[in-house]
Amino acid sequence: MTTVPGQVPVVPQGHRHPLDPEPVRSTKARAVFALGLIGALTGFFVGGVVPATIALTLARQARREAYVSGGFLTGAGWLRRGEQLAWTGLLLAAVAIVVALVIGLVRLAGAPFGHDFAPNVD
């Protein structure tokens, strides 16, 4: 129902029970985002594995709590971005480990194997 052309339609709001709590952002959602960001920033240095793993564990708990709360815990966007950053940190750590292994194997392959004796030794 609109009253004036160009005006936003008025949508009647449902009545809430007076004892219903106010919707609040989950504190775990903020923690997941912060830990995911730390994990992504330090992921290539392999130090981001720990905060990224904690972020993914907290995200699972926060999603469960948000489901049980029936919509009174918000912060799904923060959770989603935090999880993406945590997975990015884990991916960067895995890339760093693979690169280090490849460099180590190439150097090992180029090194002489066994003892390098002088030419006059039989």
Score class of each variant (00 low, 15 high):
20 D>G: 06
35 L>Q: 09
117 F>V: 14
65 E>F: 05
58 L>V: 03
7 Q>L: 10
98 V>T: 13
96 A>E: 05
100 A>K: 04
62 A>R: 00
13 Q>L: 15
116 D>R: 13
92 L>V: 02
75 G>S: 05
31 A>T: 12
32 V>N: 04
75 G>L: 01
11 V>A: 09
54 I>G: 01
80 R>D: 15
38 I>R: 12
71 G>E: 04
4 V>E: 13
98 V>A: 15
89 G>D: 01
40 A>I: 02
54 I>D: 00
87 W>I: 07
22 E>D: 14
93 A>R: 00
30 R>H: 12
39 G>M: 06
107 R>W: 10
7 Q>R: 11
89 G>I: 02
88 T>D: 07
101 L>Y: 11
96 A>L: 03
58 L>W: 02
94 A>V: 10
79 L>G: 00
34 A>E: 15
122 D>A: 12
12 P>S: 05
52 A>S: 15
75 G>T: 01
50 V>S: 13
100 A>R: 11
63 R>M: 07
12 P>F: 04
120 N>S: 13
38 I>H: 04
21 P>D: 05
19 L>W: 06
115 H>Y: 07
92 L>T: 00
40 A>N: 11
81 R>I: 08
116 D>G: 11
21 P>Y: 04
81 R>K: 09
112 P>T: 12
94 A>P: 00
30 R>V: 12
71 G>F: 08
114 G>Y: 02
78 W>V: 03
101 L>E: 09
7 Q>T: 14
113 F>V: 14
31 A>Y: 00
121 V>S: 07
18 P>K: 05
52 A>D: 02
51 P>Q: 08
44 F>K: 09
58 L>N: 09
58 L>G: 01
67 Y>F: 06
29 A>I: 01
83 E>L: 05
66 A>G: 11
76 A>D: 11
27 T>D: 15
7 Q>D: 15
46 V>I: 14
93 A>P: 00
101 L>S: 14
6 G>T: 04
1 M>R: 08
55 A>G: 08
115 H>R: 13
109 A>I: 04
27 T>Q: 14
17 H>Q: 12
53 T>S: 15
121 V>A: 11
121 V>E: 14
95 V>S: 08
120 N>D: 13
119 P>K: 05
108 L>R: 14
24 V>N: 02
5 P>D: 12
20 D>I: 02
15 H>G: 08
101 L>I: 12
44 F>M: 11
18 P>C: 06
48 G>A: 05
